[in-house]
Simulated assay, not measured.
Amino acid sequence: MAASLSDIAERAGVSIKTVSGALHGGSARMSEETRSRIKQIAEELGYVTNLAARGVRQGWLPLIGVVADELITSPFATEIIRGLDGAARTAEMAVFAMNLNGTRDVASVLEEVRRFRPRAIAYAAMYHKTVALPEALVGNVGIMINCSEANGRVTSLVPDEESAAFEITRHLLAAGRRRIAFINLPGLLAGELRERGFRKALHEAGFAPTGVVPAVRRPIYSDRAPSLVGTHIDGLMNASERPDAILCGNDRVAMEVYSALRRVGARIPDDVAVGSFDNQVEIATRLDPPLTTMALPHRAMGRLAAEILLGEETVPPQTRRLPFQLISRSSI
């Protein structure tokens, strides 16, 4: 039979409350020596926490539930889950996710998550966007990750897109580039904010964009939409004032830009420098030359989300913008 708290208490000569405090972080006061002895006895007896019984006692299980808004379909946005899970494990918690996609609404997915009686619930999105949560569900979501709640009723952690674009544009300018074009992501909040930072950096330096054009033919960016990259590169490189740098909306666009520039005989970075966003490592490090790009703060958002969800203090809803990291390689 599995060892119980009473078995450990009897062996250690202490109360069950003291054992629970030592193993589960309860309120019982004890010396570190007593705590260590109880943990050693629990290990010797092969004690395993009965999560179901613990959940009944305290009203929740040591879990963080995630409503994953298409998150698990994205190879690099899963860094959010990794950051969340790492911080949760430190607090002896576990993370589980339920996928939200076009066939299921947020209410049904959230209800599924709540059945597991998690300590807290997060809503995490595949890409930076605004989400309008139904009024009845707002109180059930502790934090929004990689998205913001449309009415500001839930604390949100989002990437600082505008500052990232400002920083990498300044990096291009510092490298002596003056004629900078931007092949952007149409219809996305990230694209809108990045363009704002791009234009701001150029304006402050006394320059104008050589061009700002969409990466795809559709009004909203998708990596499956018909690409316009080749057409734009042909037009830019045949213009009287050719760009000496191209900023790309993401690393997939940068990959296309590399191919298109090579087709017209332009060398990277000698003739044209290339910068980007996301730091999809399997792309950025394998391009020749390796790509300079702004790394999304996904893992940092996950870690901070866990800290906020498990923290003792309750703070008013707010939006926190986390900085990207410039990953400097050989394309600039």
Results as ranks from 00 to 15, higher is better:
T292C: 06
E192C: 04
L322A: 10
P316E: 05
A295E: 15
R242C: 09
F324D: 10
R194W: 14
S331L: 01
K200R: 07
W60R: 00
P226Q: 02
I327K: 14
M301K: 13
G21T: 01
G65P: 09
V141M: 02
F324P: 10
A120G: 10
M255P: 08
L23S: 02
S222D: 05
Q280M: 06
S27W: 00
R29V: 04
Y47Q: 05
H24M: 03
A122E: 00
Q40K: 14
D105T: 04
N279G: 06
A164N: 06
S240H: 05
L304H: 11
I81G: 13
E149A: 10
I168F: 15
G249P: 10
V274G: 12
L23M: 11
E241L: 00
M126F: 08
R199H: 13
L228I: 02
A175F: 03
S328R: 14
A124S: 05
I180R: 09
I145P: 01
D7E: 02
K200D: 11
Y47R: 15
T231L: 13
H171D: 06
L202E: 11
A94F: 04
V257Q: 04
R82M: 15
M255A: 12
L202Q: 06
N151K: 06
V158A: 04
M98T: 09
F198T: 05
R267L: 13
T210R: 11
E10N: 04
I246A: 03
L5R: 08
G211E: 13
A300W: 00
P297Q: 09
S222Q: 03
K17D: 09
V274L: 15
L296W: 15
S148A: 06
R199E: 14
G230L: 09
S227Q: 11
I283M: 08
T231S: 06
A94Y: 07
L61E: 10
L61S: 05
P134C: 14
A122S: 09
R303L: 04
M294A: 03
A181R: 00
V264I: 11
R153V: 12
N50F: 00
V272A: 10
P289T: 07
I8Q: 04
I121T: 09
R286N: 14
G83R: 01
G187Y: 03
G176R: 13
E33P: 08
L51G: 12
S330F: 05
V216L: 13
V14Q: 12
V131P: 02
R114I: 03
T73F: 04
E192G: 14
G142E: 08
E167N: 11
T314D: 14
V56T: 14
G230C: 07
A132K: 15
I143W: 04
T34A: 12
P214A: 06
E204P: 12
R224V: 00
D85E: 14
V109M: 02
E33Y: 09
P219S: 05
H298Q: 08
Y47P: 02
A150N: 08
I246H: 05
G142Q: 14
E195C: 09
G230P: 01
Y221N: 13
E312N: 13
V95M: 07
G25I: 11
R303F: 04
L157T: 00
R217V: 13
N184C: 10
V274R: 08
L137Q: 01
